[in-house]
Each structure stands twice: as structure tokens, then as C-alpha cells.
Write a protein that binds this DNA or RNA. Sequence first.
RNA 1: GCCGCGUUCGUCUAGGGGUCUAGGACGCCGGCCUUUCACGCCGGUAACACGGGUUCAAAUCCCGUACGCGGUACCA
Length: 492
Amino acid sequence: MRVRFAPSPTGLLHIGGLRTALYNYLFARKHGGRFVLRIEDTDRSRFVEEAEADILESLAWAGLDYDEGPGKGGPHAPYHQSERKEVYDRYARALLEAGRAYYAFDTPEEIERMRKERATPENPSPKYDAVTRVHMTNSLTLPAEEVRRRLAGGEPHVVRLKVDPGETVTFHDLIRGEVTFATGEIDDQVLVKSDGMPTYHLANVVDDHLMRITHVIRGEEWLPSTPKHVLMYRALGWEPPEMAHLPLILSPAGGKLSKRNADKMGIPVSVRQYREEGYEPEALINFLAFLGWNPGDEREIFRLPELVEAFSIERVGSSGVQFNLDKLRWYNEQYLRMMTPDELIVKVRPYLEKEGITTDEAYLRRVVGLMRERISFAKDLATAARYFFEDPTTYDPKGVKKRWKADAADLVAAYADRLEALERFDEASVEAALRALAEEKGVGAGRIIHPVRLALSGVTFGPSLFAMMETLGKETCLRRLRRAVEVLGKPE
RNA sequence: GCCGCGUUCGUCUAGGGGUCUAGGACGCCGGCCUUUCACGCCGGUAACACGGGUUCAAAUCCCGUACGCGGUACCA
């Protein structure tokens, strides 16, 4: 079995594109098939130089390796459509000679005029098809001599598929079952543009056939194009591949998850953004796999190899699915918690560096141990847990109001003195010292614990106070406690 | 407008004629644990779009309506 992911290099790889790639990958690996990457760069006007590198990087980051494609080669190279122009020309000619396609010389303005003139309330946008083409300038309406003359004169023209009405095209979709279209609903699709490049429809059909693709797994937006493709396979005497159209990913607000739409909801849309925001690739992949598919039992955590094992295209749903950032974050937390401290350290390092924080391995391992259950992203260690690396510069005002009572300064100062006298500065010792002090002063331990936490971290939440103190160390604790006493003093 | 696809808790979904007083997960709300915050554990909230059929029996099959999404380019 052979499948392909065929992105167009018009921008950063979209999250929906990654899911399409993922399903193709899973299908190929599940069945011991081949996964082909093909770059569909036939639209020169929308071409973006950096896009292909981004696609490659994004796939690699996600762990989706391919068997044939750019940078890798393969038996069906080249894998850039822009380098395969002669191939498409050959088949366009074959279609022309078989009378299944024709030349059309109409300018965009002429087509626009036709649409305007023939528009009715029932049919606001007439197609270029069997009923209108007889009124247009093409090799079906012009004398053969005239067509030859125009072609020889280099007159701009396109090649259109000749679709005969009155028939019905039915194909089987692995996800949707039988789908039927009437040929009268299909326009005479442009196959070769006036710049000589093929459109998606021609290039796609030709390449899928030549590259021996057995299963076309792509987004649902292609469903209405499929009958055109089927017609072309037939006209060329080829067997169409199996089709599977994936449900679309929708914005939580409804509608396509477009760039604009997603930005408004605070949802990253390109794979690169997910990477930059610190999502774990395993989490994104797991989440994406479950957007439209499930294994049929109640397991939820699947890494790539487990997904391969469990995947089946029949279990892919058919209705659009809404993107849910909360669920993705949950997946991210799950993967963070499954990592060993050393794995997590590797993830955290780059963020620490970016924040200008330097620290040794042993200390970082202890911090990670304390914070692991409390973070959603690896980078939180460098931001939310910054107080492990630097003295707090501010104290949360609400926390101060709530926890720094009139006796706080005295208690904290007294505790600092006790700590200074301590020989061993471990979790048990600092706790014992605090409880003893509380007893002597006749106050609840919380009366000291809370202000101490505030003094040490600047915030009212975090890991177990005593474990935190042991990690921070005696010197740091004393310094921070005394500074807080000084800065916060006695509230009136 | 026309064509196509879809419709189970707010979201992702299980289910495919009786086992459904509809299960799980995220979220949310409570509780336990903990003198913090999380984790964890326990509990709760919440859905078969609507209307007709078929059947002894429908969330499940059929038809219609509504709604959503996609397509309707010399973009993919």
C-alpha cells in the first residue's frame, strides 16, 4: 500500500495539514506500506520560499518520517510538481487527442462576462460546462484551422476537461461510503493553466497514478473535486485509488479553523507555533490523532508506535471536529508527567537559557522533581518557577494581604534566626524548627508557613514548603526571609 | 442559489435494532488528601437536532425538515 501527503508550499504547515499527514503516516505504517511526501508547487503566484523547509521541519519535529520525497529521493522522483511539467503535458496531450479535453482561449474577463450575463437567481454563478462552452471561444466551437493558427501564434490558452452531462459518477469513500455526483454539476475543469502549469486536478491525478498511490487520504474539502478526478482516471484508462476524506478541523467558534479565525480564539494554527509555544510533539500528535479517530476502547494515551498499532481508517469519524485547546493542554501535562526527570531537564534547558538562567544539573533535577506535577508546559519551569533560580523581586499583593498579618514579620524573623542556628538544613529539620517555634509562640503552624512561603517565592502556591526550603538551601532561605521582613515589614 | 457531506453531554467520542435508567475523556462543580498550589482518588453536572414512518422493540433502519460544514477559481 502506498499513500502520500501532498502539501502546497504556500505558508507554514497548518495544524490540519499535520493531521492529514499523521493519518497517512499511520495508515502506511500500520499496513507496512510506503509514505510518500510530494510538494504540490504548481501555483507560482502563491509560492512561499521558506514554506517547504517549514513543512520538512514540522514533520520531523512531529516524528513523521517519510519513505520517498524531497531530500530522500525514491523511484518516482522528482517529488516536486514544478519539476514534472513535461509529465503533465504528456497526459494533457493524451486527453486532448482522445477528445476528453479541449483548448479554450477565453480571457478571464470574457469568462467573467459570461458568468454575469448568464447568471439567474437559481444559478448565480454559471459554470464553464456543456451548456455554456458552446458560447465560448474554444477548440469545440472554433474551426480546426483557426485553433491551429491561434496555438501556433502563441495565443494564451488553457486546457479544459470535457465533461459530458447526463451521467452519474459514483465512487466509494472509505470514510463516507458511496458518494454520487451528477456530471451536469461538474464544470469543465481547467487542467493546464495559461502559464503552462497544470492545476491541482491534473497534477494530482497523474502523480497519484504514476507514483502508484493506492489510497488517497486527504481533507474533506476535496470531496467535491473527487468526481472530476474519477472522470480523469477513466479518461486515461486508469484505475482510481481508494479514497478517504477526513473530517475537517473546526474552530471552537464553528467554521473552518482558518488563520484569522484561530488567532481570534488564541489558537495557534501553524505547527511551528505549537513548537515555539512549547507543546510536546507527542502530546500534539496524540491529540490530533483523537480529533476524528478513536481506538474503540477507553485508552487515551498513545504515542506514535501505539497509534500505528491501533489505527484503522474505518474508525475515522465523518463529522467535523472542533479544536479544543484545553484537551491539548491536558495531553501536554500527561506527557510531561510521564517523562523521567532527566528527559524533562532536556526539555527545560532551552527555555532556561532563553531566560538567561544558569543552573547546575543536580539542582535542576531537584526543582524538576518538585515542580513536575504542577506545570502544563516545560517552559513553565523557567517562568512560573523562576523563584527557584532568582530571589523574588515582588510579592503578590493579594497574597500579602491574605497571609502577611501583623505578626508575620516577627515570626518570620524569629524563624530565620532559628534556621541560622540549624546544623542540618533538610526537610525534616526545617519543619521541626518551624513547628517548635509555632508551639512556643502559641500560634498555628500556618501562621508561619504561609508568610514564609510568600517570602521565599513571592507567591502563595507551590510545592511543599519544607521540601522547597531544602532545595533552595540555607543561605538563600535566610536571605529571602530577612529581605521580606525588611520589605514587607509590619502592616498597620 | 445549486451540489455534496454531516448531526449522541459545552467539546472529543463509545454505541450500529432489545444488554442504554446512553459509557469514557477534557472542562466545570463538590469532597477526600494537604495548614499552600497542584497531582492523585471519590462523587456530581450534562447529550441521542426535530417530525414522520418501519418494527413487538429505534440513539441505532428509511423519508422529510432544520441546522452546521465544505464546494461552486487559470488556489490548493
